[in-house]
Structures are given as C-alpha cells and as structure tokens.
C-alpha cells in the first residue's frame, strides 16, 4: 500500500519498529554480508584487547535497522537522504526500538519530499543513534 504525500502531516509519528534481540550469529552474518570484518564485532578476545567487555554490534547494522524502519513507512526505494550520529554501543541480546517523527514537508517545484528525525534506543532507553532523513512520496494525482 503506497503512502501518499498528501496524507502526511508535520508532527506525524512513524510506527515504532521493535527489532528482535541482536544475536552473535546475526553479527557474523552481517560481517559476511557487509564485508566489515572488524573483529571487535565477532571475536570476544579482540574486543577485550581493545578495552570492550565483549563484542559489540556494527553501528552500520543498527543504521540498517533504521533504514528498515524508514522504508517500512515510506516504501522501499523512497529514501533520498539518511544521516545518523552514533551514540551508544549495542551488545548481543539487546533489543532496539526505532522511532521517528515528520518535521517538514517540501511541496515546491514539483517536489514531494518529507523530512523527519529518528532515534534508535535500547530497551532501557539508552540512545544508540539519532538521525534525520528525507523521503520522496508519490502524489495522489499528477
């Protein structure tokens, strides 16, 4: 079901996305998928050697959850810009929640762009990242 530009209002909240707990296996999978083989995400010994108390999720995996959250609302392929600032580490077995809000509609020069902000937090409300985004939505007519 398409989401139309006309149906969106500044201040609208995007539906929350609650992800399944991050697992060690998922971090191995994401390493292989992304090509990011930094061992702090998969090898506990290396994580400890650099001062962490265990492996941590790739920040880009958490950003990918946010991408899933945005496209679930706006539609796959609708994102025009997506920026995040990483704040906190995510460990295996943590559950993260994506939330967002619309901040601006740009309706000029034939554009139908919607801007907003998002956060991703742990179950304890610790901030993992915050960011902003621009999506392009179809119009009902024309």
């Amino acid at each position: 079901m398409a989401r139309y530009f006309e149906d969106v209002n500044v201040g609208d909240e995007l539906p929350e996305l609650v992800k399944d707990p991050v697992s060690e296996t998922q971090l191995v999978r994401y390493s292989g998928a992304s090509g990011d083989f930094n061992p702090i995400h998969t090898v506990p010994r290396v994580a400890q050697e650099v001062g962490l108390d265990g492996i941590i999720a790739h920040g880009m995996l958490i950003m990918a959850f946010g991408g899933q959250f945005l496209t679930a609302w706006a539609g796959a392929g609708a994102v025009r810009r997506y920026k995040v600032r990483f704040s906190g580490m995510t460990k295996p077995s943590e559950t993260v929640v994506c939330r967002g809000q619309i901040t601006e509609k740009i309706d000029e020069g034939g554009q139908s762009l919607v801007r907003g902000r998002l956060t991703i937090k742990g179950a304890d409300e610790s901030l993992k990242l915050k960011g902003d985004f621009t999506v392009e939505l179809p119009r009902k007519s024309g």
């Binding site: 399944d20 998922q26 999978r29 992304s34 990918a64 991408g67 899933q68 496209t71 679930a72």
Partner: peptide, 12 residues
C-alpha cells in the same frame, strides 16, 4: 544475504 542479516522481509 544483506536482507537476511538485517532481518528485513519487505517483499518489495
């Protein structure tokens, strides 16, 4: 592979 790793199942 990427979709499976992220847990994304959008049929699009």
């Amino acid at each position: 592979e990427f979709l499976l790793a992220v847990g994304e199942d959008d049929p699009a």
